[in-house]
C-alpha cells in the first residue's frame, strides 16, 4: 500500500479537530482533550487507506472493524464518521441533543451507522474487539479489528483479562492502540496510578508491542501498515498529548470533559490552522 500524502492526512486531521471542537462547542458539553489526542490515529485509520470499509454498506461482513473503547472521545468519532460518509455533517448538529436522529449520544451506540457496540463504561472494548476478531476468523475472512484504548482505561482489570485471552487464542487480527495521553479526568495518569513500565506489561502478556509518537503521521502510517504478526495480537502504544493542537488545552486535566466558552472557542480556532 502506497503511503497517501502525509501532508494531506495532516490537513485532514486539522479539519477533524476543528469539526470536533465545533460540535462540542455547539453541544455545550463533551470531551475535547481525549478527542484531540486520538485524532491523528483515527485520521490514519479511516483516511490513510488502512481500514477496509464502505460507508454505504456499514454491515459488510468483510469490513475491517474499528472500536473506540474510550467512548467519551465521541466528538472526534462522530466527526470522523461524518467525513467518512456514514452520517452527514448536518447530523452533527444533533450531537448530545435530545431526539438526535442518528442517536449521537455522549457515548457511541450501534444505532449510529458505523458504530459496532455501545461504549461509555471503560474497560470493555478490548474484550468486544477480541470477540469480533474471533468471529471474523471463524468466518474465514481476514478482517482486522482496531480498538483505541485510553491510558486511564488500562486501570480496568478487564483489559488484562482480554490481553490474556487474545494471547491464549493467538488472535493476530486484533490490533489495540493505546492513546497514551498521560492525563485522566482526576489527575495525570502517573500520579493517579502509574502504568509504567507499559511496554513490559504488554510484552509480559505476550503481545507484539510497538511504540510510536501518536502525532507523527508518518510514524502512525508506518506502524499501521506492518503485516500482521503470525500469531500474536498487536498493541501500538501511541504517545500522545491530551488536547493536542490547542496550546491552552494541551496536557491539561481541566480540558478532559468541558466544552470551550465562546471566547476559548475563538481562541482555539485561531490555533487550528
Amino acid at each position: 500500500m502506497a503511503n497517501p500524502n502525509i501532508t494531506e492526512l495532516e490537513k485532514k486531521a486539522l479539519e477533524l479537530r476543528k469539526l470536533a471542537l465545533k460540535i462540542i462547542y455547539q453541544a455545550g458539553s463533551g470531551h475535547p482533550g481525549g478527542s484531540f489526542s486520538a485524532t491523528d490515529l483515527m485520521t490514519a485509520l479511516y483516511f490513510g487507506g488502512i481500514m477496509n470499509y464502505d460507508a454505504s454498506n456499514p454491515k459488510d461482513p468483510k469490513r475491517d472493524r474499528f472500536l473506540l473503547s474510550k467512548g467519551h472521545a465521541s466528538g472526534i468519532y462522530y466527526s470522523v464518521l461524518a467525513k467518512a460518509g456514514y452520517i452527514s455533517e448536518s447530523d452533527l448538529d444533533s450531537y448530545r441533543k435530545i431526539n438526535s436522529e442518528r442517536f449521537l449520544s455522549g457515548h457511541g451506540h450501534p444505532k449510529t451507522p458505523g458504530i459496532e457496540i455501545a461504549s461509555g463504561s471503560l474497560g470493555q472494548g478490548l474484550s468486544v474487539a477480541h470477540g469480533i476478531a474471533l468471529g471474523t476468523k471463524l468466518d474465514g475472512n481476514d478482517s482486522k479489528v482496531y480498538v483505541i484504548l485510553g491510558d486511564g482505561e488500562l486501570h480496568e482489570g478487564q483489559i488484562w483479562e482480554a490481553a490474556m485471552s487474545a494471547d491464549q487464542f493467538k488472535t493476530n487480527n486484533l490490533i489495540a492502540i493505546v492513546d497514551y495521553n498521560k492525563v485522566c479526568q482526576d489527575n495525570i495518569t502517573k500520579d493517579l496510578k502509574d502504568l509504567e513500565p507499559l511496554e513490559d506489561k504488554w510484552k509480559a502478556f505476550n503481545w507484539d508491542v510497538h511504540r510510536i509518537d501518536g502525532h507523527n503521521m508518518e510514524a502512525i502510517m508506518n506502524v499501521l501498515q506492518l503485516p500482521l504478526h503470525p500469531e500474536k495480537p498487536r498493541v501500538i502504544i501511541a504517545d500522545t498529548i491530551k488536547g493536542k493542537g490547542v496550546s491552552f488545552m494541551e496536557g491539561q486535566t481541566a480540558w478532559h470533559g468541558v466544552a470551550p466558552s465562546a471566547e476559548d472557542y475563538e481562541k482555539a480556532l485561531k490555533e487550528l490552522v
Binding site: G131, Q158, Q168
Partner: peptide, 18 residues
C-alpha cells in the same frame, strides 16, 4: 478461564459478527 467480564464482552463481539 475464570474471567466472566471478559467472557461476556467477548460474547457480545462474537454476536456482532452474526
Amino acid at each position: 478461564g475464570i474471567a466472566e467480564a471478559d467472557m461476556v464482552c467477548t460474547a457480545a463481539g462474537l454476536a456482532t459478527t452474526g
